[in-house]
Design a protein around this nucleic acid. Structure first.
Lengths: 200, 200
DNA sequence: GTCTATAAATCGATAGAC
DNA sequence: GTCTATCGATTTATAGAC
């Protein structure tokens, strides 16, 4: 029988890593870092204890990789929405609809939002973690730019755009939490978030 | 030397319990239940390991007592605001200002909000815990009544009052998290939350 | 590459002295 | 009422066989 070549090994390696990350995503999101046991990840990923440590050096490393992806995903989707050909208020509407829709349908996005939430309140983590958290401001800054443009266009209320952006994301994080915590919770109309910033 | 009487013992007992609860409040709020070690509580409360277990039977019992207080406090303050002689929209304004002000000044209220957040995403806890969580709907229901009255009075936007109430509380929970997580974070203008429900 | 068995460290909780 | 010492269970991480 022929030995596996390097490409096949690399493919297996990627697949196993994704299995672990996929299992970790849901567990870390719903239970938090400390409350998630490696044995939970092992069980959900359907592999042995030792194999997880063959692909990741520690529990924190798994969480850290997920956090990195969460940051990148949120920053990218915000920057993409910002670059769309639409009015500022319409961009806000699209962003709200996109994110709340993703959470409602239990897509990965909901879990990623909660990963960020948990990371925010974790203290004493690696310096790299804190560095990543700073990057989370990319999405906030994009929203601030959109709201400022909306104010210039007379579509968005007067007031501090940063304050509005923070309330916007705070509400989304809180709603993501409710979605996981409250059985049968239905996401509210995204237009409620739009109304918050829409000029009367 | 005279022995302590029962009243003095009861006073000591109350004081020690409060020390433990006060330490636990901040730790559970900022780190979550699983990530908070009894040794952390011991250190912060300034007493021995064994003494904590003299006053509480388990780590969960400490958390549970705090959750009970959090639920009662939020329900009471909402019901009190509801009974005030003011227009529905003005009640919303007062509630938003009161809660955000409390969080801004790092009063206990911020920690209590996060206790509820953590309890929401904890699974496999005691049945009593779940029962308490149901009671958290008292505050939501009060807000729904206020918003409905506001709609009848033409002060509040049309739309599902429950959805607005959930976004309202979700935003507050998210902001409480930011306050603890982000160094130097300033609470936004409560009027942003009022704008969300105010009829144009 | 994958698994089982186990080491090493941590943590919640208890026992018993003062 | 309070403390120190320790048990017992759990959990992260590693070692070594296949």
């Amino acid at each position: 029988m022929s030995p596996r070549n390097e490409e096949q090994n690399a493919a297996i390696k990627d697949e196993r890593r994704e299995q672990i990350l996929s299992a970790g995503l849901k567990l870390f999101a719903t239970r938090g870092f400390a409350a998630t046991k490696i044995s939970d990840v092992v069980k959900k990923a359907g592999m042995s204890h030792g194999l997880v440590y063959h692909y990741f050096n520690s529990k924190e490393e798994i969480f850290f990789e997920l956090l990195k992806r969460a940051m990148q995903a949120s920053a990218e989707s915000l920057l993409m929405a910002e670059s769309m050909p639409a009015s500022p208020l319409e961009k806000v509407r699209q962003i709200a609809g996109y994110i709340l829709g993703g959470i409602e349908n239990f897509e990965e996005s909901a879990y990623y939002f909660l990963i960020v939430s948990h990371a925010s309140v974790m203290e004493g983590m690696s310096e790299e973690n804190d560095k990543l958290l700073d990057e989370s401001m990319t999405a906030v800054q994009a929203m601030v730019r959109i709201l400022s443009a909306g104010q210039a266009a007379g579509e968005v209320r007067d007031g501090n755009p940063l304050g509005m952006a923070m309330v916007f994301f705070a509400a989304i994080q809180g709603l993501a939490m409710y979605k996981l915590a409250i059985d049968g919770f239905k996401m509210p109309d995204p237009e409620i978030l739009v109304n918050m910033v829409k000029k009367p």
